[in-house]
Design a protein around this nucleic acid. Sequence first.
DNA 1: TACTCATATGCGTCATTATTCATATGAGTA
DNA 2: TACTCATATGAATAATGACGCATATGAGTA
Lengths: 107, 107
Amino acid sequence: MTHMSSSAYKCEDVKQLSQLFKLLAEPSRLKILCGLGLECRPVSDIVAQTGLSQTNVSFHLRVLREAGLVRPERCGSFIYYCLPDAALLDLLEDWKAWVGRQAEVDG
Amino acid sequence: MTHMSSSAYKCEDVKQLSQLFKLLAEPSRLKILCGLGLECRPVSDIVAQTGLSQTNVSFHLRVLREAGLVRPERCGSFIYYCLPDAALLDLLEDWKAWVGRQAEVDG
DNA sequence: TACTCATATGCGTCATTATTCATATGAGTA
DNA sequence: TACTCATATGAATAATGACGCATATGAGTA
């Protein structure tokens, strides 16, 4: 316990947080999330929008669904997906802003 | 262009953002970043603190360094690493808060 | 120079995971 | 029931990335 600081060692829940980031780290998944925005869209729309294969979209939607990052809603033979929490988009925006600032600094 | 909305399609820079998240998705790397906090520490300290092997720490530090997420500073035979931007910690805190809230909601 | 300590790097291996193909489920409709 | 469309799933493959071992670099010191 020599140089314990107030700022360090704050991430007890590194595991939980890294799992979340892993979900967002997949370009296809991030594209799906961002593409959804605040709207609900059927899978076929997501497929068309992202250009990914239907199989692949379904795969990633399952991952996101099981993590609670998207919520499915059946409507007829369609299944609509949407973000359960708008705050997620704000967080993503914060990172984008940060990345933008970093890019300025680094050149 | 049938149902283009204001909220969707906002992530032009999905690739850049997902690369950043990929860096943070590695538990070891996240541990290193969080462990650093606002301080500068030599590699040997990071090794001791994280319990990771020296090789592995160096490996991850390189990844983080090349991405601009840590900055090295030579001091004698030691190389100190620190975060170049304190805002990074705030962003991580925001996510932790969000994850906490999600956990409440989901049960 | 020779020696030590701190850190970095090349290489091989193992584990994880994204992707595709083919097929199954499940709702709607005739 | 049979048929179609929307979505999900299983199996196989391919790509990525983390980790350890051995070794190299580079600074300090005698």
